[in-house]
Amino acid sequence: MRALIIACMVLVASTQVHAQRYFASLMWSVATPAGAFRSFVNETSASGFGLDVQWWVADHISVGVLGGYNMWSDVFRDRTHEFQSGAYDAAINGTQVHTVNSFTIMAGSRYVFGRSRDVRPFVGVAAGAVTSNQVLDVGFVEFNEVNWHLGVAPSVGLLIPVSFQTMVDLSARMSYGFPSGTALYDASTHAIAFWSINAGITFGN
């Protein structure tokens, strides 16, 4: 964990030195949950976006910050949810609407292969925070659980030049938020994990 924090600090500090060359990607994100989290929302959702701002610190290396939002919502009919209510152990059955809102705020770096003006593959890694807001609605009752997770997000992708200062940014990313808080589904811990395909437009040079 200490190494992770130091790495993030180095990445952020290095952006102060090379702030004159940057690129920013605005991305549409299609994401699908992974792991036990999938039992809560089992759908691939196109409701997501991301913003990634990177500064060049070397010929092939950029560092920056990325933010993102993904949302999933799924319906399960005739489901029973158990919970505690005062002195009672309770259960409620009905049509459940499960919704998860997740924000990602991370510092990250990319290693971009190739040369400017070429189609440039890249690999990236980011670390920071992932939030998860689990909402379980059944009838007129709502259960809500908000958690912050330490997270990591490795990615691979392509930068495809379109014009002098514009590129298409395509990437696949695995986002993982380490266990935190309580799961509103049948799991002993709540770790948020999802795969995302991100496609967007990049401005800058």
């Binding site: 009672y88 152990d89 409620i92 009905g94 049509t95 007129f140």
Partner: peptide, 10 residues
């Protein structure tokens, strides 16, 4: 879909 069945016990 808004109908619910709720139970509880001590």
């Amino acid at each position: 879909d808004y109908d619910t069945v709720l139970t509880g016990y001590i």
